[in-house]
Computed example of a mutant assay.
Amino acid sequence: MYLDLIKKELAAEQEALTQIAGQLNHEMEDFLDTLSKCRGRIIVCAQAQNKEAGRKTFSTLTQAATPCLFVYNDETFNPDAELIFPEDTLLVLSLQGDSEDHKNLLRLVHSNRNRLTAITSSATSPLAKVAHRHLTASSQDSLATLGYLVARAFTQARN
C-alpha cells in the first residue's frame, strides 16, 4: 500500500519536472531576476488548494534567510494593505488566477505599485496578464514543484 503511494507521488513529480524542464528559458531567468531585484520582502501568496505549494515555497525561501511573508487564508484572499509595502514583490501561486479574491489582490498591487510574479496554469488568466513575470504550471503537482524550484534557485543565487 505505502509503496504504491510513493510510486504515485514519484510519477507525479517526474511529470512535473518534465513539464518544468521545458520552461528553462529566458522567461525563467527573467522571473528569477525580478525576484532578485526585490528591495523589500518576497510575499508568497497562496489560496485554498495552493496552500501547500505556497508553504513549501515560503519554507525554502526562509531557510536562506530571505526576508519574506506567507499570506494565506481559506475564506478570503484579501491581504491587509498594512502588511504589504510598495518595495515588496509578490509571488502568487494559483492554478486559476481568476477568483474575486485575486482581483482584490490585484487592486492592492496596483495601488502599492508592487512587482508581481505569478505561477498559474494559463498565460491568459487575469493574474498572469498583469504579472510582471509569469510561469505556467500544468497541474497542482507542477505548481508546487515549480514554486519550490524557483525558491531553491533564488536562494542558491543569493549565497
Rank of each mutant, 00 (worst) to 15 (best):
M1L: 07
Y2S: 05
Y2R: 11
L3P: 03
D4V: 00
I6H: 07
I6E: 08
I6M: 09
K7S: 04
K7W: 04
K8G: 00
K8E: 08
E9C: 06
E9P: 01
A12M: 14
E13L: 14
E13C: 06
Q14I: 04
Q14C: 03
L17N: 11
L17R: 15
L17G: 05
T18S: 09
Q19K: 15
Q19I: 02
A21R: 15
E27I: 01
E27G: 02
E27M: 06
M28Q: 11
E29I: 10
D33E: 06
S36I: 04
S36Y: 10
K37Q: 12
C38W: 13
R39L: 04
G40A: 03
G40N: 08
R41Q: 08
R41F: 05
R41L: 02
I43N: 05
I43Q: 09
V44S: 06
V44P: 09
V44Q: 11
C45G: 05
Q47S: 07
Q47P: 00
A48S: 10
A48D: 09
Q49P: 01
N50C: 11
E52V: 04
E52N: 12
E52G: 02
A53D: 07
G54C: 03
R55H: 11
R55D: 02
K56N: 06
S59H: 15
S59P: 02
T60C: 04
L61N: 09
T62F: 09
T62C: 04
T62Q: 15
Q63E: 12
Q63M: 10
A64N: 11
A65V: 01
A65M: 12
A65H: 15
T66R: 15
P67E: 09
C68D: 04
L69H: 12
L69D: 02
F70G: 00
N73W: 07
N73T: 00
D74F: 08
D74L: 09
E75W: 15
F77S: 01
F77R: 08
F77V: 01
P79K: 11
D80P: 02
D80M: 08
A81N: 06
L83E: 08
L83M: 14
I84A: 08
I84K: 11
I84L: 13
P86H: 07
D88H: 07
T89H: 07
L90V: 01
L91N: 12
V92Q: 11
L93Y: 12
S94E: 07
L95F: 05
S99H: 12
S99W: 14
S99G: 04
H102Q: 05
K103D: 02
K103F: 06
K103V: 00
N104I: 00
N104W: 09
L105D: 05
L106C: 03
R107K: 11
H110M: 06
S111Y: 05
N112H: 14
R113T: 00
R113K: 14
R115D: 01
R115I: 00
R115G: 00
L116W: 07
A118S: 13
T120F: 10
T120S: 14
S121G: 13
S121V: 00
T124G: 01
